[in-house]
Structure formats: C-alpha cells, structure tokens
Design a protein around this nucleic acid. Structure first.
Length: 285
DNA sequence: AAGAACCCCAACCGCTGAGAG
DNA sequence: CCTCTCAGCGGTTGGGGTTCT
C-alpha cells in the first residue's frame, strides 16, 4: 500500500501529504523502537516528528502498543485466555481495553479481533445475536466448560483453575446453570413439527426472554469436586435426548462435525458448532 | 490449476474525555 | 468558561493468506 496522503497546498497540508499510511516497514519499526528505547513512550505526535517517522502520532502509538512493545504476546490465545475473555466480556461487554488489562501481553485490538472473528462468527452460525441472553448461555454452559476441560487436559492445577473462577463468578455460574435448565426445559416443551421447523430456523428465538435471574440452587453448569474431576452432571441430565419429541430428526444426524470427538477436543479448537452438536453435548451429561 | 469465497488481523477512523493554557 | 491538543477507546476496513469449488 505505502500510500502517501494526497492533499492540497498549505504548509500543514504539505506535512500531511508526507504522512505515510498502511503497513509499517522494518525500517520504520526500528526507528520507533530505537526512539522509545531512548526517550520512553508518550508524546506520540512529538515522537513521530523527532524520530523521523512520517506517521501520525496515533499511528506510532498503535504500532508500538499492538505490535512492537516487548511484552506483547504473539500467537494463539490459550484456553485460559479465551476463558477469561468470555468471562470478562459477559461482565463488561465490549470494554476491550479493560478486558485486555487482565490478560498480560494481549492487546485490546487482539481481544476485539478474537471476539469478532471467533465468537460473533459462532453466534452468526447459530443464527442468534451475539449479545442475546441465549447466546451468553451457550457460552457459559458449553463453551466455557469445554475450555475448562481443555485446561484440565493440559494438566493445569486445580488452584490455577480456581483462580480463574473467583467466588463471585461461581454464583454467577450457578445462576447460569439454572438458566440453562430453564432454556432446555423450554425445549422440552416443543412438540410440533411446525414448531421444530421454526426452531431450526432460529433455534434460540424461543428463549430470548430467558434471563439469568432465577435464584441459584444446587444445580450449575459445571464445577469441581474434591478430586478436581470435571463434572456437570445434574444440569444437562434432564432426560437428555429422550426429551426430543417423537418425529423430531435426531440432531446428531445434523452434526456437521460428527466425526470429531469434539467434547474432548473442546470448543476452543472446535470450528463452528451446530444445534445438533449442542444437543449431542447435552446427551453426554 | 485457477478463480472465488472466506477468514484473520493490522491499521485506520471518528469520537470522547482529560488536561493545559 | 472556552479552545486546543493529545491519548485512548471502540468500530470498521481492506490486504493478504488460506480454503473451497
């Protein structure tokens, strides 16, 4: 790209004309690194000028914070990081920088991109709004537990996991569990082909009024016992697939990734999952 | 093999709030 | 107060790589 901004004639506009945009070159990167090394961060407009960079201060700041800063972590997000993002987003919404503060080495931009490309894509696939209560329930009741399983598979200690689920969150999760139960209770009531057809088109529309304010009981999506084994038995043991009304197609038949052992694989590395898969997961518990 | 479609992510844009003068 | 500058935030875009047909 390396385009130069093209404007007219006044002196400030002449300066603007010199401004580079688009991808950074190695040379620009090293200029920026060297300057920050010597003078520190901040004063980005001055920095851009003094470092001999034909970039806006804004552009320099972004390049430094998102890419060049030494503690910026590269590579895929770990299950732990994904779990945190899901958890914190449910709390704070699109407050990317606030969320990023809790993931050392990860930038708000990276977290935002993760949310848009992975999480929203999943929501689109399920034909449900990413901000809907129904989708939040899917995240809490399927995605997050599967990330926890993945952490367990990676031999993370129970203490490390507990650190991710702080006490106040446990109560949230309990409420979530009830909410899920309520959701699937609603599913159990679907009994006509026509309703199922509608459900297939917009699987969560039925549950959009569902909320997480149901008083907590002993049921929850997932938890750990003393031996740290993962279990989430009660919540999704609700007659499981037998709840499917007669004549309903087996959702597992529709599972487009049915060959995968996707429960043990975990959602984290799983592509898009379908309603059939959600049913299938439910039947596991 | 090639073109189309899709996906990821770096970078940009517009807006807002804080602080200085 | 008012204005200006700057830093920071969240939304959006588009280039390049990958996968699909």
């Amino acid at each position: 790209m390396s385009s130069l901004r093209k404007t007219s004639t006044s002196s400030s506009e002449d300066e603007a004309e010199q401004l580079r945009r688009g991808p950074w070159t190695l040379e620009e990167d090293s200029l920026l690194i060297r300057y920050v090394d010597r003078h520190g961060e901040g004063r980005w407009n001055l920095l851009a000028k003094h470092a001999g960079l034909r970039r806006t201060g804004k552009s320099c700041r972004l390049r430094w914070l998102n890419y060049l800063k030494p503690d910026v972590k590269r590579g895929n997000l770990t299950p732990q990081e994904q779990f945190l993002i899901l958890e914190l987003h449910s709390k704070w919404g699109n407050r990317w920088s606030k969320i990023a503060q809790h993931l050392p080495g990860r930038t708000d931009n990276e977290i935002k991109n993760y949310w848009r490309t992975r999480v929203q894509k999943q929501a689109r696939h399920l034909k449900v709004d990413a901000n809907s209560v129904a989708f939040r329930n899917v995240i809490r009741c399927y995605w997050m537990p599967s990330l926890l399983q993945k952490m367990e598979a990676q031999n993370e200690t129970p203490q490390q996991r507990q650190a991710l689920i702080r006490p106040e969150q446990n109560s949230d999760l309990e409420q979530c569990g009830n909410s899920c139960v309520s959701s699937f209770g609603s599913m159990d009531n679907i009994s006509k082909e026509s309703e199922f057809a509608e459900y297939q088109t917009s699987p969560f529309s039925v549950f959009d009024n569902n909320d997480c304010n149901i008083p907590a009981s002993k049921e929850y999506c997932y938890s750990y016992d003393n031996t740290t084994r993962f279990h989430d038995v009660d919540t999704f043991n609700l007659a499981a697939t037998s709840a499917l009304p007669e004549g309903f197609p087996n959702p597992v038949d529709n599972c487009h990734l049915a060959d995968n052992d996707w429960v043990s694989e975990g959602f984290a590395d799983h592509g898009l999952w379908s309603m059939g898969e959600l049913w299938e997961l439910r039947s596991f518990h």
